[in-house]
């Protein structure tokens, strides 16, 4: 079965399963456990122009069906990434998606310009939706005008295929999606984590060092599907869907909601090889629901594709 996915500006994923940013390190960390070349792509942890220290610990807290994190985008900066991590990744045979972050519009553009010069980068993922930093990050993703400006600046800085990662912590992610599409984004990735809080009863204070954190894992899957479904009806550019995926069955749901590919994250911590297992199981799962390729399943649940009797009546 054809699992490959063709995306804008010549970006090709050998299959629609991509490691989600923040859950797969900067590339080499999982090399002894995962055959990285079997994955459709890897989106690395957020990379900024200069090193960022991240938030005080504790940085993770388990919740029912989910995981709350407040890492705070710790990274060693784009120069160290290009020198130490990228050379490993570009030889793995997977699509290398670099998640980029900044405190200002100019910083986003600087990272994009730097990465545009570096061989082996397949695409950029512009992170305007991280809930764990005080300046920049999610604030850009909450306002359509700000989101437009960041996207435009990254577009100016690089011709690489570019996706913009949306926040679910806004009344209408589709409005942000429209803004970044008009600013030149090639794709949307959605969703980032939801802002949450946990309480440490023993210490009588919020559990995470950063007070609030971003919720991921199966608990957020229905919200992610809703966002993908809404955004798919408002923009023409492809969507990489994510949020709580743990099985091939989940992947088919995201494809049917309108995603062209998916990212898998939190489950990797528990089962490092789950992404490879999903790739292996996906053909059977697609066939089970009557699809003979990934492409056929994309958007199958959208109103425009359904066209059944019920839709005709309503």
């Amino acid at each position: 079965m054809k699992l490959s996915v063709n995306l804008p500006r010549g970006l090709v994923l050998k299959n629609p399963i991509v490691a989600a940013s923040g859950t797969f390190g900067f590339g080499p960390e999982y090399k002894d456990l995962v055959n990285i070349g079997d994955l459709g792509g890897v989106s690395v942890k957020g990379v900024s122009p200069e090193p960022w220290p991240g938030n005080p610990p504790p940085r993770v807290w388990e919740t029912t069906g989910g995981l709350l994190n407040s890492i705070g985008l710790q990274n060693h900066g784009v120069e160290a990434f290009c020198a130490h991590d990228l050379p490993f990744l570009r030889d793995t045979g997977t699509a290398v998606i670099v998640n980029i972050i900044g405190h200002t519009v100019e910083e986003y553009q600087r990272v994009a310009e730097r990465l545009a010069k570096e061989p082996g980068v397949s695409a950029l993922e512009v992170n305007i939706s991280c809930p764990n930093i005080k300046q920049g990050g999610m604030s850009f993703g909450h306002d359509p005008d700000q989101a437009y400006l960041v996207t435009q600046a990254v577009r100016k800085g690089s011709d690489l295929p570019m996706m913009v990662k949306l926040s679910p912590n806004v009344p209408s992610p589709a409005v942000i999606a429209e803004a970044v599409q008009s600013a030149g984004a090639d794709m949307i990735s959605a969703i980032n984590t939801l802002v949450g809080l946990a309480i440490d009863k023993e210490r009588r204070r919020p559990a995470l060092g950063g007070t609030t954190g971003g919720l991921s894992g199966p608990a957020i899957k229905p919200i992610a599907l809703r966002v993908v479904y809404e955004v798919a009806q408002r923009v023409k550019i492809p969507i990489i869907g994510m949020g709580g995926i743990t099985t091939a069955s989940d992947v088919v749901e995201f494809l049917m909601a309108g995603a062209h590919a998916v990212m898998v994250g939190t489950v990797t911590f528990q089962y490092p090889r789950r992404m490879q297992e999903i790739v292996a199981q996906l053909p059977d799962e697609l066939l089970r629901w009557g699809f003979s390729s990934v492409q056929e399943a994309v958007g199958a649940a959208l109103p425009s594709k359904r066209g059944g009797l019920f839709d005709a009546l309503t």
């Binding site: 923040g22 859950t23 797969f24 390190g25 960390e29 999982y30 456990l33 942890k45 991240g54 610990p57 504790p58 940085r59 993770v60 995981l67 994190n69 890492i71 710790q74 990797t268 911590f269 490092p272």
Partner: peptide
């Protein structure tokens, strides 16, 4: 988190 150095938790 991950136990292998990837997530920085």
């Amino acid at each position: 988190g991950c136990g292998i150095g990837a997530c920085l938790a």
